[in-house]
C-alpha cells in the first residue's frame, strides 16, 4: 500500500511560491492550522489562496494574510479580518470576492469534470461583470467557470491510511469539495486510524482524492 503519511514539513515542501492553494474551513472552523503554520513559517509567498473567507488575524487563513504570504485571495468574505481589507486598500493584495454558493460550486465543477454551471446568483450585481449570460427556458443565468488549484490543504477529523476522511459537524464545509479540485491534496488529520477504522458507510471523502496525510496532533 502506498504510504501517504508524511510530516507536516515534508508535505509543505510541495508548496512552491506563486502556487494556487485551496484551504478548507469556514472562519477557521475545519481549517488545517498546522499546515498553515508551516506555510507561514517557511515563508512561501506570492500564493493565490482560495477559501471561503480570510478568517481572523490569528486563526486559519488569516495567519497567511497577516504573514503576507498571499498575492491574491479568492473568497466570499473578508470582513472578520481587518488586515485583509488594509492590504487590499493599500494595493498589496488582490481580492476577488465570489458569492459563497458560487465559490463552492465552481470548486465542485473543477473536481467533477464540468465546464461550468449556470446560476441566477449575482444577476444585476457587480458579480455579473465580464460574464456570459445564458437564458434557459426564459430564465437568465450567469455562466460561472470551474476553479481549481495546484494544492488543497484540508482538515479531517478521522483519516485512515488510505486517505478516507470522516469530517465532524460544521468542520466539513468546503473540505470535501476542495479535496476533488486540486492536483495535490494534503489532509491534516485530527486522528489517523488504520484502514477499516472508518466504516465504509461513514467515509465522506474517498481516499482516492487524497495524496498526503499529516497528523494534526502535537509532536510528542
Amino acid at each position: 500500500m502506498v504510504d501517504k503519511i508524511k510530516s507536516v514539513k515534508e508535505a509543505i515542501d510541495l508548496v512552491k511560491p506563486g502556487m494556487s492553494v485551496m484551504i478548507g474551513g469556514f472562519l477557521g472552523v475545519g481549517t488545517p492550522e498546522k499546515l498553515i503554520d508551516e506555510l507561514v513559517e517557511k515563508g512561501i509567498d506570492n500564493l493565490t489562496i482560495i477559501g471561503n473567507d480570510t478568517a481572523f488575524p490569528d486563526k486559519g487563513i488569516g495567519k497567511l494574510i497577516v504573514g503576507k504570504r498571499a498575492k491574491k485571495v479568492i473568497v466570499s468574505h473578508i470582513g472578520t479580518n481587518p488586515e485583509t481589507g488594509r492590504q487590499m486598500n493599500e494595493g498589496e493584495l488582490e481580492v476577488d470576492l465570489v458569492p459563497q454558493g458560487t465559490l463552492a460550486e465552481r470548486i465542485r465543477c473543477a473536481g467533477a469534470g464540468l465546464g461550468g454551471f449556470l446560476t441566477p446568483t449575482g444577476l444585476g450585481t457587480v458579480v455579473e461583470q465580464g460574464k456570459q449570460k445564458i437564458t434557459v427556458d426564459g430564465q437568465e443565468y450567469l455562466l460561472e467557470l470551474p476553479l481549481k488549484a495546484d494544492v488543497a490543504l484540508i482538515k479531517g477529523h478521522k483519516v485512515d491510511r488510505k486517505g478516507n476522511i470522516y469530517y465532524r459537524k460544521t468542520a466539513r464545509n468546503f473540505n470535501p469539495i476542495m479535496a476533488m479540485a486540486a492536483d495535490t491534496v494534503i489532509v491534516e488529520a485530527e486522528e489517523i486510524v488504520e484502514v477499516g477504522g472508518i466504516e465504509a458507510n461513514d467515509v465522506m471523502t474517498p481516499g482516492l482524492f487524497v495524496d498526503i496525510i499529516v497528523s494534526g496532533r502535537d509532536e510528542k
Partner: peptide, 8 residues
C-alpha cells in the same frame, strides 16, 4: 468591503 458571503 466585507464581501457578500452567502447573502447573494
Amino acid at each position: 468591503v466585507p464581501g457578500m458571503g452567502g447573502a447573494m
